[in-house]
Design a protein around this nucleic acid. Structure first.
Lengths: 356, 356
DNA sequence: ACGCGCTCCGTAAACGTTTACGATACTATG
DNA sequence: CATAGTATCGTAAACGTTTACGGAGCGCGT
């Protein structure tokens, strides 16, 4: 007598139970695949849920379970990043999700507003307990967020290294390896005076990049000259500015390594304006591969990698740090340096004539 | 006697209340700025919350209130989009947040996994009641998501038009306006045979784009030839392919309008390979402005707009559709076409000699 | 007949908030 | 002094789940 009426408005598991004339507990067990339920009734419950479009309210569930089945990826959308992130995050996200979805985990991206302090933003998100675990990106050289997450006892992994990172898990592009390879290549072509560009901000990858460059120079017995380290934004304008600064140096370098491929556009233009031809008068090496690198004339020498696979790796690293999944993903390789493959172009392929 | 011990582990408002020797209700009222609380005690509560790092558990709060203070932005991260979205979403997101943050609303991005049906994904997210309102993007020509959201009675706005949109609010780039302007310009330069590129997928913007193009042609008394509408991916490779198809036409067009600026890179290259010089032998007009458009030789004629401000507009449109904010944002202009400004380059500036 | 184990299901407590309601103390007013 | 009004606070219910616990029914061996 309780059922048979018009379809109730479906406000929760209560209505579903009433409709089936079954207790609320049994419905919950049936939906969640618990063992203590007849296969026959489980089928009925699942069918009714499908038909009535019932999906468990997330708030109620996570309040009870203390878990949300959500992983957060924090990004700082609109600072310097927005100029150069390209599809970096979306591609990495694809890899992350391919792993998470296997475990019924949902990934959400948490873009920190540009008028809010990233640390405070993260604190807020963490304290609200809206995610089970966290991935942070664009790590600073000194980054208080690591302490915050550790103290909050929330599992996390970082996309990018940091001095503050300790034993925490991370994955990062091989910035020093790339810088190293670029220097080797340039030195082999006869260059001794090599400039490098790095972001103006405190993002750690810049330091790692320059550090790899410095060590490579030392290995070749070349003096490290801080004047050749140019801080600039990772954009076309930044590249233009780098060229500007290089041109103003009294002892002009014969090669330059850019931390972001897009900068080559501006650099090429400024050099051309000054009558200096990239690939003939100055060697240029970029960083990540991108379509326009192929278009530049001469084509830019740069480095390729699969950001999707980097996402896969990072997801596994994070899961191995989560108690509930630690048994599936071994605790090995919790800190991964992601290598890139050299794509030789023609922007640095000339042999330097011994000048001076 | 109840307090003064060591700092409790701070599990919730309960501990905070105990620590202050105040009732749990008063603490809640104090934190939420309710009137029925002494200013003196409110200060004590706020101070203690700050000191102990208390932030309300989101699950408990939204379970009780039936509201989450979260707006979702759904994106399909890794389909065709990932090739061409550039920083489109991150930039729009910046604008969205600048509005939402004024109302203590948090924006989260919900990237639909590429192996999941977007409709099912959205259904899941909506049913879980994890957001108060929703923004959907990359709208298809026929898009079932509108029905879904309307039936679920969840406020929403769309970034992009659709045939399924009815009276629902949206904001969209002025695709037909751009196509219109491009045709006008090309016709003024003597072109009569004008090709256009459009995405291969069912995303609606392609249809709007071509429709604007078709109407502009008609206005000039030019026959609309379906053979000149080339479907291709919005990437460099897509541009290469467009050029390929144009070259294979018996009656070759003298101008081409691209729906995505990046395609110009591939198109330029393929044209050059065939000995055809863009800006001299064929006119090219691109769509959104991007740094590389300036670098292309000859510079690409394209269109500029502020995606950030588009985000601001879209946020206001959404808020005006939410009951709790409708009184702040008037119900006017719930469907907005976002205009773009022509950036003349040299890729289409030559006057066509009357051939044939 | 009895007890035991097993399968299946209902009951109720608990998760952390917010908020309607009532209680208390104090002030002002007659 | 009695009463009404006001400011402040405590109490408890409610939100929608999950899950520990116990109970009912049944089959089976002794």
């Amino acid at each position: 007598m309780a059922y048979g009426g018009k379809p109730q408005p479906m406000k929760g598991i209560r209505q579903l139970a009433d409709h089936l004339d079954i207790s609320i507990g049994t419905v919950s067990r049936a939906l969640n695949g618990k063992p203590d339920v007849n296969e026959e009734t489980r089928k009925r419950v699942l069918a009714a849920a499908e038909q009535l479009g019932y999906v468990a309210n997330q708030s109620g569930r996570s309040l009870r379970q203390g878990t949300t089945n959500v992983i957060g990826l924090m990004i700082q959308s609109s600072r310097e990043t927005v100029e150069n992130s390209d599809n970096f995050f979306l591609t990495v996200t694809g890899g992350l999700q391919s792993v998470f979805s296997r475990h019924n985990l949902d990934l959400i991206m948490l873009p920190c507003p540009n008028d809010e302090d990233p640390y405070e933003y993260l604190k807020r998100m963490v304290a609200r307990r809206v995610v089970d675990a966290m991935i942070i990106s664009e790590t600073q050289r000194i980054d208080k967020r690591f302490d915050l997450l550790a103290k909050a006892k929330i599992p996390f992994a970082a996309l990018g290294r940091s001095l503050s990172i300790g034993q925490h898990p991370w994955a990062d592009l091989d910035f020093d390896g790339v810088a190293n390879c670029a220097v080797d290549r340039l030195v082999a072509h006869g260059h001794r005076r090599i400039a490098i560009s790095t972001p103006a901000s405190d993002i750690n990858l810049g330091f790692v990049f320059v550090e790899g460059y410095r060590r490579a120079l030392e290995r070749h017995g070349i003096h490290y000259d801080p004047a050749l380290v140019i801080r600039a934004k990772s954009s076309e304008q930044g590249g233009y500015q780098v060229a500007d600064e290089l041109l103003s140096l009294e002892e002009r370098p014969t090669a330059v390594i850019l931390i972001y491929e897009l900068m080559a556009i501006g650099l090429y233009r400024r050099m051309m304006e000054a009558g200096i031809i990239p690939g003939r008068d100055i060697a240029v090496v970029g960083f990540r591969e991108a379509p326009r690198a192929k278009f530049l004339q001469p084509p830019l020498t740069c480095f390729r990698t699969s950001l999707y696979d980097l996402g896969v790796e990072l997801a596994e690293i994070l899961l191995s740090a989560m108690p509930a999944y630690g048994h599936i993903y071994p605790k090995t390789r919790r800190q991964t340096i992601w290598s890139l493959e050299l794509i030789p172009g023609e922007s640095d392929s000339f042999q330097l004539a011994t000048t001076k």
